[in-house]
Amino acid sequence: MKRSEIQEPKASPNFIGAWTTQPISICDEITCFFEKNVGRQVIGRTTSGLNQGFKSTTDISIPPSDICLPGYTAFQDYFEILHCCYKDYLDQWPFLQRFANTLDVGIFSIVRYQQGQHFNGMHCERVSSSLHRVFAFMTYLNDVDSGGSTYFSHYDLEIQPQKGLTIIWPADWTHAHRGNTVQGGTKYIITGWLDVT
């Protein structure tokens, strides 16, 4: 067997959608929620358990049903914004409208990376225990002084955290990525998945 090359008329897209969240103040509200809820913060876990060599973070995980509770208004506002981003993503890739209009947000997380922390293991969002995930989303809640970029290895694409930048990408192996070590300052994100129900 020999690998063949298929010529393409132009470079392939990376299927990572990006938007700037407005109003930007929503980022501060979510960060403030994280810092006020110390009792809900846990050392970051992955689907395979706790491994700080792979992922070193502090997280708050929130089931979507909680956003109707008092004190969660920021999340209601955030998901309205995210929904607009997702609708625009579907407009960019009309084929997705055949099946991707009925996805739901699952449990989502607010994540804090302090200096020296990372999600440095290359991973994708859809593995044997999470096959229901179709897309991932993430919004950077602040600018990062140094380091802390998200690196998509197959595209050699490095995204530096910018406050309000929201990205959506396919959850599969085609979008393997890692969160590089924060070299200076603190990094906050809100992240989760759009799932088949």
Rank of each mutant, 00 (worst) to 15 (best):
residue 49 G to C: 07
residue 138 M to T: 07
residue 124 C to Y: 06
residue 106 G to M: 12
residue 134 V to S: 13
residue 190 I to G: 03
residue 47 T to M: 14
residue 25 S to M: 00
residue 106 G to C: 14
residue 15 F to L: 14
residue 32 C to W: 11
residue 91 D to G: 04
residue 140 Y to V: 00
residue 150 T to I: 08
residue 178 R to Q: 14
residue 165 L to R: 11
residue 122 M to H: 12
residue 193 W to C: 14
residue 162 Q to C: 07
residue 173 W to H: 12
residue 173 W to F: 13
residue 114 Q to D: 14
residue 9 P to F: 11
residue 165 L to T: 10
residue 51 N to W: 02
residue 123 H to D: 09
residue 137 F to C: 08
residue 23 P to M: 05
residue 155 Y to T: 03
residue 46 T to Y: 02
residue 84 C to G: 15
residue 48 S to M: 09
residue 147 G to F: 01
residue 186 T to P: 04
residue 98 R to N: 14
residue 77 D to C: 08
residue 125 E to T: 06
residue 90 L to V: 04
residue 182 V to I: 07
residue 163 K to R: 13
residue 128 S to G: 11
residue 171 A to C: 08
residue 91 D to S: 10
residue 194 L to F: 14
residue 40 R to D: 09
residue 67 I to P: 00
residue 12 S to K: 09
residue 56 S to C: 15
residue 87 K to I: 10
residue 142 N to S: 05
residue 97 Q to P: 03
residue 180 N to M: 13
residue 93 W to E: 08
residue 29 E to F: 05
residue 192 G to S: 04
residue 46 T to R: 07
residue 116 G to H: 04
residue 156 D to S: 14
residue 133 R to Y: 05
residue 84 C to S: 15
residue 187 K to C: 02
residue 4 S to C: 09
residue 8 E to D: 10
residue 50 L to S: 08
residue 119 F to N: 11
residue 65 S to M: 11
residue 93 W to I: 15
residue 138 M to Y: 03
residue 140 Y to Q: 04
residue 66 D to W: 10
residue 127 V to E: 12
residue 42 V to F: 15
residue 116 G to F: 01
residue 167 I to F: 02
residue 153 S to Q: 10
residue 54 F to M: 10
residue 28 D to T: 12
residue 188 Y to A: 02
residue 180 N to L: 13
residue 103 L to W: 02
residue 132 H to Q: 15
residue 64 P to S: 03
residue 67 I to R: 01
residue 37 N to I: 05
residue 18 A to Q: 15
residue 163 K to H: 04
residue 111 V to M: 05
residue 13 P to N: 07
residue 13 P to M: 00
residue 1 M to N: 13
residue 65 S to V: 12
residue 47 T to Y: 12
residue 145 D to C: 03
residue 59 D to W: 00
residue 107 I to V: 15
residue 151 Y to T: 03
residue 118 H to I: 07
residue 74 A to F: 03
residue 140 Y to F: 15
residue 77 D to W: 04
residue 66 D to F: 12
residue 73 T to C: 01
residue 92 Q to E: 13
residue 168 I to H: 03
residue 61 S to R: 09
residue 98 R to C: 06
residue 160 Q to F: 06
residue 126 R to G: 04
residue 46 T to M: 11
residue 95 F to T: 14
residue 60 I to W: 00
residue 61 S to I: 09
residue 65 S to Y: 11
residue 122 M to R: 10
residue 175 H to F: 07
residue 21 T to E: 12
residue 164 G to I: 01
residue 48 S to D: 09
residue 40 R to E: 12
residue 39 G to N: 10
residue 68 C to Q: 14
residue 197 T to E: 15
residue 105 V to N: 09
residue 117 Q to S: 12
residue 11 A to H: 07
residue 161 P to E: 02
residue 168 I to L: 15
residue 67 I to N: 01
residue 158 E to P: 02
residue 92 Q to H: 02
residue 39 G to I: 00
residue 132 H to A: 14
residue 148 G to T: 00
residue 70 P to M: 05
residue 26 I to S: 06
residue 191 T to R: 01
residue 160 Q to A: 07
residue 189 I to N: 02
residue 177 H to N: 02
residue 149 S to C: 06
residue 124 C to F: 05
